[in-house]
């Protein structure tokens, strides 16, 4: 497929005896929002970690924008345009929200071997960071220490940091997990506004989010992808129903 942004071939990853990723093939098309669903323990987070470079597969290849990135570490993949959010909120808790995003801007603003000028007075970092906070709706919260932000705000902050690296591919690991109804609606609207501008891989249990946002869905079970297709096709797929969706009231 010519316009696959992320192309995964025969990916295998095991921990001891447990095979977490079992010969996974996957293509994420440029511009699409691709959801990966499956029960707990299916290996979704392990898969995301391999896309991001936090884990390295035992076998198989990962190609991003036509380039084999299998051996690249996370920082290098970030520079190629892969950004992620974590399942468990991961921000710099001691820093203010603005510091958090400014650090993400800084990571992509040349070398950080700059020892003398105060980074917090650096408009080349602060201005884009402030703008990014505005765009995720945290404009008024820039000076709040991240640890003191509400859970939903921390999730938003995390996405602001990911976006601040100007990624081509956004890997989102359960972005609405643990959120209240209002918060998650707001997050889904926001992610919807990113559609088209960013290619997204979305791991999510919230079926509302998945079926609202996804262009295509892959279903994972015991480390394998058992089906990939448009939302309606997945909803209708017998194997998926039997294996996974059968007990999901959301459908």
């Amino acid at each position: 497929m010519a316009d696959a942004l992320l192309e995964v071939r025969r990916l295998v990853k095991s921990f001891g005896g447990l095979i977490a990723t079992n010969r996974v093939d996957l293509e994420v098309l440029d511009g699409e929002t691709h959801a990966i669903i499956g029960p707990n323990g299916a290996g979704k987070t392990t898969l995301i970690a391999q896309f991001a470079g936090d884990l390295h597969p035992d076998q198989g290849t990962i190609t991003f924008a036509g380039r084999d990135v299998t051996a690249l570490a996370a920082p290098a993949r970030s520079h190629l345009g892969i950004a992620r959010s974590f399942q468990i909120t991961s921000v710099f808790r001691e820093f203010t929200a603005l510091d958090n995003v400014a650090l993400a801007v800084q990571a992509h603003a040349g070398s950080s071997f700059a020892f003398w000028r105060p980074a917090r007075a650096d408009r080349a970092l602060r201005d884009p960071a402030r703008a990014m906070l505005e765009s995720v709706g945290l404009g008024a919260r820039g000076d709040v220490v991240a640890a003191n932000l509400a859970h939903g705000e921390q999730r938003q902050l995390e996405i602001a940091m990911a976006l601040a690296t100007r990624p081509r591919l956004l890997l989102l690991d359960e972005p609405v997990a643990g959120m209240g109804l209002d918060e998650s609606q707001q997050m889904i609207r926001f992610l919807g506004s990113l559609k088209g501008r960013h290619t997204m891989v979305l791991v999510e249990h919230d079926m509302d989010a998945v079926f609202t946002l996804a262009d295509r869905i892959s279903v994972m079970l015991y480390g394998r992808i058992i089906a990939t297709g448009a939302p309606e096709a997945i909803r209708a797929n017998e194997e998926v129903r039997r294996a996974y969706l059968g007990d999901e009231r959301a459908l």
């Binding site: 991001a52 936090d54 570490a73 996370a74 920082p75 970030s78 520079h79 950004a83 992620r84 974590f86 991961s90 921000v91 710099f92 808790r93 001691e94 820093f95 650090l103 993400a104 990571a107 992509h108 940091m161 990911a162 601040a164 690296t165």
Partner: peptide, 10 residues
């Protein structure tokens, strides 16, 4: 503060 986050942002 958060090594994994640092690596993820590049």
């Amino acid at each position: 503060s958060n090594e994994a986050r640092m690596r993820a942002i590049g």
